[in-house]
Simulated assay, not measured.
Amino acid sequence: MSVILRPGKSSAIEASSLSFDGMTRVELIWLEKQTEFWIRFGNGAGEQVLNRSRRVVFFMPGSVFAFVRWAASDYGTVLSCLDIVRAIAAGNSYQTLPFVRPGGEILLKIEGWPKVEKVLRYVDAIESLGIDAADVDPDHWRHVAHWMKAGEAPRPYTAERHAAWLRRREIGK
């Protein structure tokens, strides 16, 4: 079992020498064309490789990440989900989510591949502005979730809106 720390560290480190206590753990699985769980965006604090098809990514409290789950059977797709989650600090309340331990604050939850694809395109549009999707205002992800569930198009996230969020976040510190 090896552990890789990110960012900036590329060499494997012994698992026993690290402590991931207090972090949110996300189990990722990749069995091509069968089960594919991956992180679309987010700044992981570390990664533990379990085997060729499984690994665990760790997130610091307050980190925002997108977790995509897709699974198929002999008859086609059986699961398509995208969750945008904020990792929680120890002792805080949280919502449970499969393969996320202990859980997190779910900012957006979408099911069904057509809707998941729309959110992925939305994330691409935000990143095309030069904005890291993990730094987007959490309220905006809630806005996207509500409007998509209502079958409407959410407001676009703009550089101006992002700058306003960054100023609000600085004031709140």
Score class of each variant (00 low, 15 high):
residue 16 S to G: 09
residue 101 R to S: 13
residue 140 H to T: 06
residue 68 V to M: 02
residue 65 F to V: 03
residue 137 D to E: 13
residue 73 S to Q: 02
residue 140 H to Y: 14
residue 77 T to E: 15
residue 123 V to Y: 00
residue 120 L to P: 00
residue 97 L to C: 06
residue 53 S to I: 01
residue 46 G to V: 03
residue 35 T to V: 15
residue 18 L to I: 15
residue 94 Y to W: 09
residue 89 A to P: 00
residue 75 Y to A: 14
residue 66 A to G: 15
residue 22 G to Y: 07
residue 124 D to I: 01
residue 124 D to G: 02
residue 35 T to Y: 12
residue 19 S to T: 15
residue 35 T to M: 13
residue 138 P to K: 04
residue 88 I to R: 14
residue 56 V to P: 00
residue 28 L to N: 02
residue 20 F to D: 05
residue 115 K to Y: 10
residue 146 H to K: 14
residue 85 V to W: 07
residue 36 E to H: 09
residue 22 G to V: 07
residue 147 W to S: 01
residue 131 I to A: 03
residue 93 S to V: 10
residue 15 A to M: 12
residue 51 N to I: 05
residue 118 K to C: 07
residue 25 R to I: 03
residue 124 D to L: 04
residue 111 E to V: 08
residue 133 A to V: 11
residue 26 V to N: 05
residue 15 A to W: 09
residue 35 T to S: 08
residue 143 H to K: 01
residue 112 G to C: 10
residue 38 W to V: 07
residue 30 W to Q: 13
residue 116 V to M: 11
residue 15 A to V: 08
residue 126 I to L: 11
residue 103 G to M: 08
residue 113 W to R: 15
residue 100 V to F: 07
residue 133 A to S: 13
residue 94 Y to M: 08
residue 118 K to V: 13
residue 99 F to G: 01
residue 79 L to M: 07
residue 69 R to F: 01
residue 24 T to L: 11
residue 16 S to C: 11
residue 117 E to K: 08
residue 82 L to R: 10
residue 61 P to Q: 03
